[in-house]
Amino acid sequence: MTEQPRRSVATYETYQEAERAVDHLADQGFPVQRVAIIGRDVRLVEQVIGRMNYGKAALNGAASGALPGALVGWLFGLLDWVNPLVSSLLLALYGLIFGAIVGALFGLLLHAMQGGRRDFASVRAMEPSRYEVVADEEVADEAVRLLGGLQTTGAGERPTPT
Rank of each mutant, 00 (worst) to 15 (best):
A125P: 10
I49M: 14
Q114T: 08
G61C: 01
A63Y: 03
I101V: 14
E46M: 13
G77A: 03
I101M: 06
S129K: 14
V123E: 14
E132I: 12
A112C: 01
P84T: 00
W74E: 06
M126L: 14
V82N: 03
D41Q: 13
P84F: 00
M113P: 07
S64V: 10
L71N: 00
G99Q: 09
V72G: 01
F106N: 04
I49C: 12
S88I: 01
V82F: 07
R130H: 10
G50Q: 08
S122G: 03
M113F: 04
P68W: 09
L79I: 04
V72S: 11
F120M: 03
R51I: 11
G61V: 06
L67K: 00
F106A: 00
A66Y: 00
D80N: 10
W74N: 06
A70N: 05
I101Q: 03
I101C: 10
V102N: 03
E132G: 07
V102D: 09
A92C: 08
D41K: 12
A100Q: 01
V133Q: 07
V72F: 12
G50I: 00
D80S: 12
L108N: 04
A92T: 08
R130I: 06
L105H: 02
A112Y: 09
S88V: 09
V86T: 15
Q47E: 15
G55V: 07
W81Q: 04
A104R: 08
L105Y: 11
V45K: 14
A57E: 08
G55Q: 11
W81A: 11
N53I: 02
L108G: 01
G61F: 00
A125V: 03
G77N: 10
Q114Y: 11
R124W: 02
S122H: 13
L79P: 07
L79N: 08
L93M: 07
G116P: 07
L85T: 08
G103K: 02
R118D: 09
L85W: 14
A63L: 10
Q47M: 13
I97H: 03
R43I: 08
N83W: 11
Y54S: 05
P128Q: 07
Y131D: 06
G65Y: 07
Q114P: 02
L91V: 06
A135M: 06
Y131K: 07
G55D: 01
A125F: 09
L79F: 15
L44H: 05
G65H: 10
N60V: 08
G107H: 02
W74K: 00
A62F: 08
D80M: 00
V102Y: 03
L109K: 03
H111E: 01
V42E: 14
S87N: 10
L67D: 12
L93V: 05
M52L: 14
A135G: 10
S129W: 01
G73H: 02
L90Y: 13
R51A: 13
A92W: 04
G95F: 01
L108E: 04
A58V: 03
A62D: 09
N83E: 12
L78V: 11
D41C: 07
G99A: 05
G61Y: 06
Y54D: 13
L44E: 15
G77E: 05
R124E: 07
L44R: 15
V133D: 04
